[in-house]
Design a protein around this nucleic acid. Structure first.
Lengths: 204, 204
DNA sequence: GAATGGTCTATTGTCAACACATTACAATAG
DNA sequence: CTATTGTAATGTGTTGACAATAGACCATTC
């Protein structure tokens, strides 16, 4: 058996969801934009069925808002008070993940995380900020998944999406890589307290 | 305009979701039970389309678990550590709600909540514990909705569902009503600290 | 001129049939 | 007898057509 890196297979719906999320987060589809099922179906070369599924999913994630018989539109930014609450909740989850993972990361895990950081640096240098955002998220997602599996990812994801929607501006700079590296280094050193501090500092 | 109580209109999908949630929480569909789309469609007298939507929704809520091309089944109970995390998160949300609502409840709100408590007492006396659970949830949901709207309900709901799934046993007794009454009384008295204590005591 | 009521169109909700993937089981080779 | 490959049956993913609804537009009335 060759030890080729397993290429990830994404379902059709996941790919569409991914694309739409990018469009929303990048600002290409600003809040209030209406989503037309037929249009989207044509754009992706599918029928309306799968599109509807994706819309339902993104609605549950909080990116879209749907009303019966009236279609879906891109959700608006959160009330600042709710925004603060969401940050608190997301921090709770990520603190949990870091605590759980402390001392339980395999070499493979660490290598994977290093790879993600490299990709992050790359995207940053290319000034591809949409990609930066996606990789940033994937770093965190990797930790969450390792700590709590798909279950935890599912409850964590909406917070990230809502937060991204609120900061449309590009937050990123070289700091971005440094902050994530600090998290990884603390995890490698099995220094739980520092890791938690680093995570808290990164989520804002 | 007659002052009739506005009867709630539920979409077809919401009604099906409601029914399936009941079946799962009541234990009628224990974990690992597979859901057959065609069967469900026949049971509700619909086609598979709406059923699929509901399955997707309940999957996002954490009640079901789905794999590509393999269908959905009732999710199993949570790892105790994750369970603890979810309780913490849910408490954060409900504390937020109670804090926000303190001093901001209208008379109508209070009357609505009183009605819910009455219904709760009723169901308890009838020993209809599935109904008790539903009304219990609706009490909390009312508060969450008033404090943060649909947005907040959407992130809160999965926690409740997962917690219910974990305690299949009937938790309820006369205490149930008392605990909720304590919350309401504290809110009426605009005593935020007591309200938070009461909420924390109720969520476990 | 504002408000009420009735069409008309665009868009979503639903359905039944088809295409495809997965599973379990039987057949075959080693 | 075990392991692998082929095949049939079951169930999910997708599609295109049809039904129902919301929102806009226009006419009519007071």
């Amino acid at each position: 058996m060759a030890a080729t890196k397993p290429t990830k297979i994404l379902s059709v719906k996941d790919q569409i969801a991914e694309q739409l999320r990018s469009d929303i987060i990048s600002g290409e589809m600003p809040p209030q934009t209406k989503l037309n099922e037929k249009e989207l179906a044509e754009r992706f070369g599918l029928s309306r069925g799968p599109i509807r599924d994706v819309i339902l999913q993104l609605t549950k994630e909080g990116l879209l808002i749907s009303r019966n018989n009236c279609g879906a539109s891109v959700n608006s930014v959160l009330d600042p008070k709710l925004q603060k609450l969401m940050i608190k909740l997301r921090r709770s989850i990520e603190e949990y993940a870091v605590t759980e993972l402390n001392g339980n990361l395999t070499e493979q895990n660490i290598a994977d995380l290093e790879d993600i950081l490299t990709a992050l640096q790359d995207a940053l240098e290319r000034e591809d900020y949409t990609e930066v955002t996606k990789i940033d998220i994937s770093f965190h997602q990797y930790l969450i998944y390792q700590a709590g599996g798909e279950e935890l990812v599912n409850i964590w994801y909406p917070y990230v999406m809502r937060m991204r929607l609120n900061y449309k501006r590009i937050t990123s700079s070289s700091e971005c890589v440094n902050e994530h590296r600090a998290i990884l280094e603390a995890l490698k050193a099995q220094d739980s307290a520092t890791a938690i501090k680093a995570i808290k500092h990164n989520i804002k």
